[in-house]
Nucleic acid binder design. Sequence first.
DNA 1: CCCTGGTAGTCACAATTTGACTACTGACCC
DNA 2: GGGTCAGTAGTCAAATTGTGACTACCAGGG
Lengths: 178, 178
Amino acid sequence: MELPALSLNEWLVLALIAEEPTHGFAIARLTSAAGPLGTIWQIPKPLVYRAIGRLAELGLIRHEAIEPSTTGPQRALVAATDTGRAAMAAWLVTPVEHIRDVRSELLLKLALLDRAGLDPGPLIEAQRARIDPLIAALRQRHEKATGFDRTLTAWRHESAQTVLRFLTILQTPPAPSP
Amino acid sequence: MELPALSLNEWLVLALIAEEPTHGFAIARLTSAAGPLGTIWQIPKPLVYRAIGRLAELGLIRHEAIEPSTTGPQRALVAATDTGRAAMAAWLVTPVEHIRDVRSELLLKLALLDRAGLDPGPLIEAQRARIDPLIAALRQRHEKATGFDRTLTAWRHESAQTVLRFLTILQTPPAPSP
DNA sequence: CCCTGGTAGTCACAATTTGACTACTGACCC
DNA sequence: GGGTCAGTAGTCAAATTGTGACTACCAGGG
């Protein structure tokens, strides 16, 4: 039962459906530029519906009966299956592979954990463990580099360290003003 | 004479043609994963040729006579026009607007300046001036933020500071070992 | 009673990306 | 000397992604 790779769009749609049974338009609202998640990751409306279609094909979500909406047109409810919820829960605590995915994927996971009222601690720790050896390797490469490679490795090293600093800030709650 | 916006791909192709008259395949080699610029920005082969087509339409480059290659098939030489070289020179020293463009666009400009043997100092200074007020604004927003917004603004603030640190490193040549 | 505005979803098209494909030349091996 | 391998040069078609415009439904205000 290999789960084929999902795009970030698809993971986000699955996550929102796993929170509670909902419908496409509500997801589109949450992930629009104006919505609460739109500051991290936006999904254009047509892509929301495309993602729902794909997730349904994969058996991660299921169409419930159509709800006779009280206001406006009918809405097609979708709910996560057990498989879907399990995949979701695993993804939510898996650290990201590459530095470049921190901005989108890690922040999104943190936001989703926050929405669910779950402790982000384990994810933060796992991410730190993933990054630590990477930073060591980048420092070595930077120390040996010459010419323009020095500029490039400097950037990579600084970027990796930034992730570490960011994770540390998250673990240090802001001091209450005295 | 408004110059329509060029993509990063197109700027890079123009830059390499401005270095010296060349042909599509050579550009594709330089910007492939294995090429010297591939570590910063890769351009798939078909996109190199599409970029050449667009640049020619805009009058930034011109097709020279086809060179009867000594080895292998014929190659279609292209050279930058005066307009093209001027646009290029201006772009090369213009700092990037957004933090997210540092990794790709600013690094690329630095690499191209390095290849041309030009002083990166003015670009670095200009970029610093562009970033400074941004950081101040982000710090303010971070200090006021609460809830998950605090996490988001922390990331943005750290990212902006990283750019500043990076620019500082570039201005500080590595101390010669004693 | 018509018009605006929000809800819900779909469609057709444009842009980007990917991999594979043609074609040409020189070199190497048998 | 002929087959074929590797490298050069460029193009194409298909898959994926993204965009804008469109239908349709209902409520409330003038």
